[in-house]
Design a binder for these strands. Structure first.
Lengths: 81, 81, 81, 81
DNA sequence: GTGGGTTTGTGGCACC
DNA sequence: GGTGCCACAAACCCAC
């Protein structure tokens, strides 16, 4: 069973720890975001709709238009409009 | 057709922008993480294996905790806790 | 370390196996569904929009109206309409 | 504002209905599974622990496979495969 | 462009 | 009754 020498092992450990540290920070931010949604909900905003808004604003405008237009066509075809 | 007044609109915008800012930071961290993997790859480590390592180190904790919890539940169920 | 007697152990095993069997069937159906989407895509339909349609049809009509109306209000407030 | 002709509309409707039928069956199975858990609970088993058991039995396979794959990758990396 | 993996969103569930 | 949690399913993204 081959194995790494001391130097590669140290480098490996270093990479892993850097990643773990960054992922910890990322998790903390995710928690912050959940908290903001929760706060918004607390003053009466609808969280689900809020998420839709954020998602829409993230989309390129022309893509959004296209998507909405396509949905409309499908909806009309199925009498859902 | 109802709509928001000026104050709720401002609050809404504020929430949305706070969320967007946090998500931006989160995305930046995700990019950082990708970069570390890329750097590791650059010195010869296998990214996929590296990801598995990180994942295993993360799992080892939660699995053990789960396991302990499971044991605890059994013990309590049998009045041995 | 306490443990179950023979009868409870059998019952437990029976429950677990029933669940596993049902989950297997559920997975098979999930695969079927993916296949239908794939087939629809193959003849030119947009899968994402298709999913939206299915989702909308699942919603109660009045709920759907409400949701859409609410989204509209938020969109107008943020000049996304 | 474009829209579908009669034939594409029929095809669309057909796809949607096939999906809805399959999803109905899937939901029914999900309900069955919930019912089995409920029944198990009714005779004194702990549902949460039961879920963990099912999950562990499922994981035992995939984890072992993952583990073997990981080993394989290492071996190939070291020209031992 | 396709597949895998990660992440996000939804729904059921228990607790309060 | 509602709120937080957790598990599952869907969407997204990257790498190939």
């Amino acid at each position: 069973m081959s194995e790494f020498g001391a130097a590669p092992t140290d480098r490996l450990r270093s990479f892993v720890e850097r990643i773990e540290r960054l992922e910890e920070e990322k998790s903390a931010l995710a928690a912050d975001i959940r908290e903001v949604y929760s706060e918004a909900k607390g003053v009466g905003f609808d969280v689900k709709v809020l998420r839709q808004i954020v998602s829409l604003r993230k989309m390129d405008q022309s893509d959004r238009r296209e998507q909405e237009e396509l949905l409309d066509i499908y909806k009309r075809a199925l009498d859902l409009a």
